[in-house]
């Protein structure tokens, strides 16, 4: 009797441990997201952009005041022509504590473009006016483009 009882208890314990191991792990939503470089490649393949310049991390520090410690990924391109304000700016913050800071700095960049263009480049002013700094989890973006809706859709479907 004791042997049967011990055997049953052992089997029961086996089941308990097995069920712990089988607890499904929730998949992070980031696992589904494409790297920002691939999102940029998708944008470039589907949208006709003007000639653009890619910024380096040093440029991000110098121009935007956004330091490498604040983000885990970035992809930033601006129009080569100084008279056009087309921009593709994407960041993935290192963690939630950096999201607001990056958003604030991108808003400063956007406001600067509005100030510059308001009085002498009305078409560019309209373009920048339609843009907005968007936050989705750890992702912060600023797209300035006549194809804003299409670019937003590509990005939203990629994360």
């Amino acid at each position: 009797m004791k042997k049967i009882f011990c055997f049953a208890l052992s089997v029961l314990m086996l089941f308990v441990f097995a069920s712990c191991g089988n607890t499904p792990v929730e998949e992070s939503s980031d696992k589904q997201s494409l790297p920002l470089s691939e999102i940029m490649a998708k944008i470039e393949s589907q949208i006709t952009l003007p000639a653009m310049i890619s910024l380096s991390s040093a440029d991000l520090s110098d121009f935007y005041g956004i330091e490498e410690t604040e983000y885990s990924e970035f992809c930033v391109s601006i129009c080569e022509n100084s008279l056009q304000k087309d921009q593709i700016i994407m960041f993935k913050a290192a963690d939630e504590s950096y999201v607001d800071g990056i958003r604030e700095k991108l808003n400063t960049i956007r406001q600067g473009a509005l100030d510059e263009t308001e009085n002498y480049l009305p078409e560019q002013f309209d373009l920048v006016s339609k843009s907005e700094v968007r936050v989705n989890g750890l992702y912060i973006t600023l797209f300035v483009s006549p194809d804003l809706a299409a670019i937003n859709e590509i990005f939203d479907n990629s994360i």
């Binding site: 110098d62 121009f63 005041g65 100084s82 600067g112 100030d115 510059e116 263009t117 480049l121």
Partner: peptide
């Protein structure tokens, strides 16, 4: 900054008609 001029360069940040550049954001 586009539109920057000597007028803006001599102005303070409180002058809303002046254009100012950014430095490190």
């Amino acid at each position: 900054a586009g539109s920057l001029n000597y007028y803006s360069a001599a102005s303070s940040l409180s002058n809303s008609y002046a254009i100012h550049p950014t430095y490190k954001g």
